[in-house]
Design a protein around this nucleic acid. Structure first.
Lengths: 138, 138
DNA sequence: TTACCTGCAAAGAGTTTGCAGGTAG
DNA sequence: CTACCTGCAAACTCTTTGCAGGTAA
């Protein structure tokens, strides 16, 4: 269980002022046992229900964006008009359940090593991500 | 080089009337040597420059959507607010060049076999896609 | 003739931005 | 005090929808 001080330090160390709103957002994102997958509207709902004082949508967008830039959050590629984020910023792959719009972490060892046999001169590889789309059986 | 008749048959066989607009769109998409990757706005620009008569954006959206549902186009998952489509509807993977927003096909054999070791009871796998993000060297 | 299709404009969803007022340091 | 942050509303982008008129069969 992380506490407020941890978040204050984390924010300060990356040049972000530890405002009330950002600390609330940190709590919602990181004060959890499991990694957390969410969209902005998921997060907004959670903040609304947890906090007494409301946090503006613009602030949520700004903060999530700041966290993403500082590598505190990872954005996940899904075919959709919404952005999905993951508190697990390590390299790993995902299931996406199309029946429920739910995102599930896969451990790297659950997907054998990806052997890339093609060369791409003049380019550097930024990431290699596997997305496995699944559906519920009917 | 496919001709108009081919497109007319293709459209008819899937219950779509071969209208002038749809044939123009077929030409833009499929009368090519290489597979084609595009966003709606890419396609709109191409149609604008190629055709004398303009095709409404709504029609382009509707047609692309109809083609996607009939498996004539594949939608590609990229972290972005735009949808990318691919005229190559087979199972295959992609490079995405973040410097240029360009999507590049990878042959399946260019990426070793993906060995999924995790089971997902009660779900069926719809697709397994690898997206490799690259950037130009500076 | 009739069901389907197109074009336009309006509406929607998600996201970003400008700016006035507020707050951390 | 000052730079940074928040909240609000407006603006923007991409996409979908309603509807009147057009067209394929």
């Amino acid at each position: 269980m992380e506490n407020k001080d941890t978040f204050v330090k984390k924010l300060r160390s990356s040049g972000l002022r530890p405002t009330r709103q950002r600390i609330e957002i940190c709590k919602a994102l990181y004060d959890r046992k499991k990694t957390f997958h969410f969209t902005i509207s998921d997060l907004a709902k959670i903040l609304k229900s947890k906090s007494n004082e409301k946090i503006s949508l613009a602030t949520i967008y700004n903060t999530v964006s700041a966290f993403k830039n500082r590598n505190y959050l990872k954005e996940i590629s899904i075919n959709s008009n919404k952005s999905y984020f993951d508190t697990n910023v390590s390299n790993h792959h995902h299931f996406f359940n199309e029946s429920t719009d739910e995102l599930i972490d896969l451990k790297n060892e659950d997907v054998g090593n990806i052997k890339l046999k093609k060369k791409i001169p003049g380019k550097k590889i930024k990431s290699v991500e596997v997305l496995i789309k699944i559906q519920n059986n009917n």
